[in-house]
Amino acid sequence: MNSLGSWLGQRLPLDKLDLRELTNEPVPYHLKRWWFALGGTPAYLFVVQIVTGILLAFYYQPAPSTAYNSVRYITEEASYGWYIRSMHKWGATLMIAAVVLHQMRVYFTGAYRKPREINWMVGMLLLICTLMIGFTGYSLVFEQLSYWGATVGANIADAVPVVGGLAKRMLLGGDRYNANTLARFYIIHAAVLPVTLAALVATHIAIIRLQGVSEMQFKDEDPSRPRSFNFFPDHLYTELIMGLALMILLSALATIAPAEMGPPADPLSTPEVIKPEWFFYVAFRWLKLFSGSAAVLSMGAVVALMFGWPFIDAFIRRRSRFQEASVWIGILGVLAILGLTVWEALVAH
C-alpha cells in the first residue's frame, strides 16, 4: 500500500495538505439554511443532465428523417429508455427552476453587490446558457411542437435589427428549417452549450472561492456561534442528501409523468395550439403583447437591465435615499414574470 502510494506520489506530485486546503474551503455558517444551497442544486442537476444526455446520445440520430424515430425507439423499445428520457426532461425542468430560485435568492439578499458584480453577470450568462440548452434540447425530439417552437424561435431572432438575419441563418443553417438544422441544434445542445456552461460554472465557482461566499448574519442567531464550518465532510453530506433527494424526486416525476411522444413534425401543418416549454412562457406572452422588433428590443432591454443591475442598484443607493429599492423592484419583477407565465399557461392563444 505504501509502495503504491509512493509510486503514485512520484508521478502525481500532489501534496495532501494542499489538496485538503483546496477542497476544504470553510463554509459560512448561513449555508446551514437550506435555501442557500440552491446554487449547488443546478450544478448537481447539470451532472445528471450530462449523464442522462450521454446515455440518450447513444441512440439519438440528429437527422429529420430519423430523429423522431430514434426518440420513439428510446421511449418505446430500448430498455428503460422511457425512464432515462424522462429523467433528462424533468432534470431540465428542475435545473431551470433551481437556477431561477438561486438567482432570486442572490437578488433578494443583495449578494450581487460590490465586489460581486462580475459574478452576478457570469450568473446571468449561466441563466441564458441554461435556457438555450432547454430550447435546443426541446427541438431535438422533432415532434410537431418542438419543430414549430424552433421555427418560431428562429424567426424571433430574425426580428432583431441589424444582426437578426445573421443570427437566424447561423442558427438554422439556412433561410428556413432545413436538413442541416437539426444537426446544428444537436451539436449546440450536446457540445457547444454544455462546454460553455461548464466553463462558466467553473468561473462562477472560482470567483466565489476568490472572494469567499458572502456571509449572512441573522437576527435570531447567537452571535457567538462559529463563523464557518468545514466543507468536508459536513457540507458534502448536505450536498449528498440534496443529491439523493433530487434523484428520488426525478425518479418519481419520471414514473408519474413520463416524457411522451407527440405527433411527428410536419412542416406543412402548424398545430392549432403551439406552446414553447414552460420556461419560455414569459417571453412568448411578451411577444404576443408587443409586435415585431418592439417586442424583441424591449425584451433585450430587460435582459440588459438585469445584466447591469448591480451597477444600477449601486447608483440608486448612492444617489437616493431608497436603500431598499431593489427589493421592491424585485418583487414587482417576480410578480410580472409570474403573471405573464400564468397568463400564457391558462389561455390557448
Binding site: L55, A78, S79, Y80, I84, M247
Partner: peptide
C-alpha cells in the same frame, strides 16, 4: 441507477 443505465445501453 448505474445498472439501469447499463441495461439501457445493452441491445434491447
Amino acid at each position: 441507477f448505474g445498472r439501469i443505465a447499463a441495461r439501457f445501453l445493452y441491445p434491447a
